[in-house]
Amino acid sequence: MSGSTSTVGGAIRRDGAMAGSRLGRTLSGLAVALGCVLFLGGFVWAAVAYRPYTVPTDSMKPTVNPGAKVLAQRVSGADVHRGDVVVFEDQLWGDVPMVKRVVGVGGDVVACCDKQGHLTVNGKAVDEDYLRGHGPASQENFRSAVPRGELFLLGDNRDVSLDSRVHLEDTEKGSVPASGVRARVAATAWPLGRAGMLPRTAAFAGLAGAAAGPSPQGPLKWLVFSVIAGAVLILGGAAYGPLAGAARRRR
């Protein structure tokens, strides 16, 4: 009787182990499949929605350092808000893409400076918290009525930035067509020590109009999470077989 009991117990254990092994293989396969969807889907979506750019000058310090590689979301110039950092092209500014901050949209009157050294938009002072040294907004006084369909652009490092202030002498308005915008900068990708989402500013939030800013954040955070989660699931699912085999051999 005792031998019979042992055989039955052994069979039950083997059946349970086989069922557990099948369940483990099924779950690991599902994890790998889901991981592939998340990883490839996030990667492809990011490649379609975002483009890498290299910032050539120090005109955007301290927000973005020269030589930094940024990820910028492809957007229309009609969708950018005051406070957005954009990549744009304009023949009067040069033959390469440039990176500046939007401080005025079509219909705005941009001027500098008030008695406190602040930039004003439509007569309202703007506390630009992103400025290198936190002010003043400009060493030179200026005023520009931005035409419809155009943007007034300044660098954050106002002491060295060649921006709409300089081009006021060329075009009498200094602004560029919104159609020249190629993308809106969302994050710094390199160097790794400064990698992360671009700081968002609420400096223009008190102004009237749909472009008061800042723009809604794009999907980049979720896409990065999708890629990382997918990689973890793929590696975890792929590791199940070898780990389970090693556990069986130890038993």
Rank of each mutant, 00 (worst) to 15 (best):
G241Q: 09
R194C: 01
M18N: 13
A189N: 08
T188L: 04
S138W: 03
S2K: 03
P62V: 04
S76Q: 04
A247S: 07
D84P: 01
P56C: 13
L71F: 09
V227W: 11
W45F: 13
G245V: 06
Q139W: 04
L27Q: 05
G241M: 06
A68K: 01
P136H: 05
G149Q: 00
A247G: 03
R165K: 12
G41I: 13
D84W: 02
S215K: 09
D163G: 11
R14L: 14
G3F: 01
W45L: 15
V224H: 12
L92T: 14
G10K: 14
L235G: 08
W222Q: 10
G83V: 07
V87D: 05
P97Y: 09
V121N: 11
V96T: 15
G241C: 04
G94M: 10
M197Q: 09
S179V: 06
A229V: 07
F88L: 08
Q91C: 04
A17Y: 02
S21I: 03
A68Q: 05
A212E: 04
A11M: 13
E89N: 14
W45I: 15
F88R: 08
G241W: 08
A137C: 15
S215V: 03
L153A: 01
A137V: 07
S161D: 12
A49E: 13
S215G: 08
G209F: 09
R200A: 00
